[in-house]
């Protein structure tokens, strides 16, 4: 190798090294601050909760030896497991109902609404931008003893006495949460439906597929990612809600977040509360994993 060639080679490598160094610097500048922030204020807190969940309280002080007593306490006490089941039940019912209403609504917006679709789309997502608390509270006005439905029923003369069946039970909690989460389903499904090239649908119809076949073979599989996204958010957020059961639920419709809050508030048992938090996050992560597995299977090409 002649010396000239060698030196130019080293010049190139040092130039490349310089570029690589600069790129690394840029990367650290961009990624460092958000990473550190999330490390300190998200990952550390979550990890800390996990650690707490293996400690326990004795004589009003937290004892730092690792044990699984909190988890045993939770799963051995039917009071707590009932609340867990109840939350799972509510989240499942709400997710199902929100999909049953939200999906057709998205379908309507994407394929039927025609020239008014922008306005109608706007109307569907508008409630998402208004207060969650107030959207839950509205149903108290509607379902309560002095509420709109009772007022209407008495006004028309169907009943003389206000009916108290509507409020403070499982029904009012599920209805309210469904009401709140319908736009969560409609929004991502609509986005997915909009992306389907119209040619696919025409091709399917041209090839002799009827409407139902086209829907099952073309539209549904292509909208699954949107459906899964909306479904997961609805499930996770309704599972962990504490506002709706507090405002509209009865004594038996307490949900898991209410119990968590009780442990950190009145009961002052942080380790036990932390164990419940770990269980809640575990349920949500399992739901996410299950849903993405289901998504991968169902959106695989079916030929």
């Amino acid at each position: 190798m002649n010396p000239v060639n060698g030196s130019s080679e080293s010049a190139t490598t040092s130039f490349q090294a310089e570029r690589r160094r600069q790129r690394l610097l840029w990367f650290l500048l961009c990624f460092g601050p958000p990473f550190l922030y999330l490390l300190v204020f998200m990952l550390l807190p979550y990890a800390n909760i996990l650690l707490y969940s293996f400690w326990k309280v004795e004589n009003y002080a937290i004892v730092h030896d690792l044990n699984i007593d909190n988890y045993l306490k939770f799963f051995e006490n039917p009071l707590y497991t009932r609340v867990l089941w109840n939350s799972l039940f509510v989240a499942t019912v709400v997710t199902t109902c929100a999909i049953l209403v939200g999906y057709p609504l998205a379908f309507f917006l994407a394929f039927v609404a025609g020239k008014h679709r922008r306005l109608l789309y706007f109307l569907v997502i508008a409630p998402l931008w208004t207060s969650f608390l107030l959207r839950a509270f509205i149903w108290k006005l509607i379902l309560g003893r002095e509420g709109m439905i009772n007022g209407l029923l008495q006004y028309v003369g169907l009943t003389d006495e206000p009916i108290s069946l509507f409020l403070y039970n499982q029904f009012s909690v599920c209805l309210t949460l469904t009401y709140i989460f319908i736009p969560f389903v409609t929004l991502p499904v609509f986005t997915a439906l909009e992306k389907i090239p119209r040619g696919y649908i025409e091709a399917s119809m041209d090839l002799g597929g009827n409407g139902l076949q086209t829907f099952r073979r073309i539209i549904l599989p292509l909208s699954i990612p949107g459906l899964v996204a909306g479904g997961i958010f609805t499930f996770a957020l309704s599972f962990g809600d504490f506002v709706t059961p507090t405002l509209l639920g009865g004594p038996s419709s307490i949900m898991i977040s209410n119990v968590v809050m009780g442990q950190f508030g009145a009961a002052f048992d942080w380790p036990f509360g932390s164990a419940i938090v770990v269980i809640v996050i575990g349920v949500i992560l399992s739901a996410v994993i299950l849903a993405s597995l289901a998504e991968r299977r169902s959106s695989a090409p079916v030929v």
Binding site: I232, A236, F239, G240, F242, V277
Partner: peptide, 9 residues
């Protein structure tokens, strides 16, 4: 996805 009250805690 984690309930806000839990992240807050």
């Amino acid at each position: 996805m984690v309930p806000g009250v839990i992240t807050g805690l």
